[in-house]
Amino acid sequence: MFKLIDKYDNVLRYFLNENNLFFTSEKMDNGGEIKKMDLSNGNLIASKSTGSALFTFTKNANGFLAKDISGNGLLFSYLLDKPIEIPSPTKVGENHVLTDFISVYQGRIKNREFGIYSISSNDVLWMSSQLKALEVFGDKIFGQSEFVIYRTAPDTGRLLWKSDLKTKYRELIGIRGGVRILGLCENLVIAAIENIDKLIALDLATGVLKWDRTTLAGFYKLDIIKSKLHIITGAYKCLDPISGNALDSFDDQQYFKEVGIFSQRNNYAIDGDHLITTDYQKGIIGALNTATHKFDWLHEEEGVSFPTPSPVVYQAPYLLVHDNRGTLHIFQKE
């Protein structure tokens, strides 16, 4: 199904755009570097030195947003020409879908302000000390604090709705933490309350709870193309994100044990009917066919593992897997 075509050492983070691989590394002088490779021929197209190593990327059709471990942000075109810096002291927050709006913040933790930066105007549109932990999904902006989720208008910060999950789930009272937003599906916000193993859906327009389900919520991934919620651990389950109802289940743990894959990640890759994931300890990667409940492809790398924080990335025809020694394994679909 896939063949190994190359490996790159000393890789920190990575992503694909068309046939091009972008990846970062750390220099001996504590600076960083980002490179662009043509995977069709293995040639280096461009490279760019950065003041510090870059760890997070959010891309769109025109380019990508990159940030370092301190939250400093840079906007690049895919040519890797001169980037645009997000003005200091503003730091970059959580951004999942990039259009014109970028979540930013400034100040120390106790006095932190959050707001929105506009790419088109190259300016911060607004800042607020009341709205916390903003996350951007295109032009949909969400924030949260102590299990209170809210949605705001992107251009003004005006509060559109607020949903206090503690009124529904009293067991959250006194617990520190928050929810993880998995994504948007039609008119719903899909989120995981990992503290109490709840998967929930809120109405995008009103914030009203539409459904919830008790499950290992933190391991689910939203398949936007097929409108499904998948989970693969030592079993496989699939839910309808619109209703929360079960669509499929395969709970033969002996089969997963024989194959050698017990997954503990939510950042696996999706290729049609296949979920491409790794074992949480051994250097095994495989593609589960969700229609047949069988692994159609398995590959093992000796002496390494594939850590959960490093995402499995697939963009046809290339597959990227990052090991615990900093080596990026590149596969091509046959």
Score class of each variant (00 low, 15 high):
M37N: 00
E26K: 05
I45G: 10
I284R: 09
E258Q: 11
G93R: 00
V92K: 10
L247G: 07
Q130V: 11
S263G: 06
Q281H: 14
V208M: 08
D273S: 12
L247C: 09
L160R: 15
F15D: 03
A269T: 02
S47L: 05
I285V: 13
L182T: 02
G138H: 14
Y314V: 05
S310R: 12
A269D: 01
N187P: 03
D155M: 11
D251T: 06
L328T: 07
Y220P: 02
S103E: 02
L172E: 00
R108A: 10
F137K: 05
T24W: 02
L4H: 09
G31A: 07
I181S: 00
K48T: 03
Q264Y: 15
I242Y: 05
Y8R: 10
A201K: 02
K257M: 09
A66V: 08
T58A: 15
K82L: 13
A269C: 04
L44K: 14
D203V: 02
R158E: 15
A153F: 13
P89R: 09
L80T: 06
S305P: 07
I181C: 03
I270W: 07
S163P: 01
G207A: 07
L44T: 13
D68C: 11
T24H: 05
S103C: 11
A316F: 10
N19W: 08
P317F: 01
G138Y: 14
G51P: 03
D279I: 05
K59R: 13
S310A: 12
T214M: 06
S263P: 00
A291F: 05
P89F: 13
